[in-house]
Design a protein around this nucleic acid. Sequence first.
DNA 1: TCCCTAACGCAACGATCGCTGCAGAACTGG
DNA 2: CCAGTTCTGCAGCGATCGTTGCGTTAGGGA
Lengths: 178, 178
Amino acid sequence: MTPGIPPRPGGRSARVRAAVHRAVEELLTESSPEALTMPVIAARAGVHPTTVYRRWGTLGELLASVAASRFSGDIVVPDTGSLRGDLETWMADVATDLADPDTLAVMRAAIGVGEEGGCACVADRHAQLAAILERGGGAPDVERAADLLLGPLYYRAIFTGRPADADWARGLVSVLLG
Amino acid sequence: MTPGIPPRPGGRSARVRAAVHRAVEELLTESSPEALTMPVIAARAGVHPTTVYRRWGTLGELLASVAASRFSGDIVVPDTGSLRGDLETWMADVATDLADPDTLAVMRAAIGVGEEGGCACVADRHAQLAAILERGGGAPDVERAADLLLGPLYYRAIFTGRPADADWARGLVSVLLG
DNA sequence: TCCCTAACGCAACGATCGCTGCAGAACTGG
DNA sequence: CCAGTTCTGCAGCGATCGTTGCGTTAGGGA
């Protein structure tokens, strides 16, 4: 989701970006999503509000950016030797990630601002799932796997209060593979 | 989700409530969720902003109220004689409901404001599912049915751009019942 | 090392938000 | 029909939001 390659990836720009992203995540965990405004984020990040407005423009774009960063590169595709093993390990990792209230708050907020926000949360997951399945010969369709694995997992995380534990998530693999 | 029984269910109060709910749904379809503020809603509803603030207090509570109304009483539990038939018919209805962009916008917005909002969207669905399964002898667990039926359905609706058609939703019943 | 561009801080502005008195209108029950 | 209660409209307020122009600072390339 990084827009091309930033002209200046390192230095102050990177620090500001990290500080703002961190501020958004922190504020989402400790207060209501409605209290999340640009000036508040800027104050928490130790940055001038103008900077936030100029770099991200809208709260929606900022949240999409945070979601994309938060849900990228944090989970590595496992390699256990078997398709079932890979899926089980990966599902446990994803479930553990979703069990974090911070992660959940970011996801809820990103969904609330439009279509792009929701997609930013799962784009990397779909890519990982495709990689696992392709290595396994593409036996189950990626679409079907996403429906039966990611579907229940994210549904529970968002709509029901109960957290989805890793064991239960692993059990979903049996539904898919039989 | 209706707080007890409103002291005055009929008359002007009901008209105002309906107008405000309708305004929220309309505004969510035609503009960004960030543009959804109390004064804007009041203006569209032809009501004074003070009224909206006093009756609902927060945009979050208003959205939760709208979601609860929108996702209650719109789908009737079918009775085809067989558990499979009931589930297939019901799933097709739910999928059709979710295919409406208006419905989707309300759901996204409700999710964005916190935990209660998400639960308000599916509380009635869970009750309906429980009713269907209980009549069928409670063969599959309600939890499992919700995971395998509602999970993929809502996941597709929220995260992926593709709408979930009724036929595909019916196919999920086969995964659950075998 | 020096220059040049991009990014940031600062200050001010108009617009909007959310809230709070008070007065009038509408609905319900007798 | 009338009285009591509840709900709504109105006007105004302080606070905050989002934007803009300009000067300054930090990073990267020759």
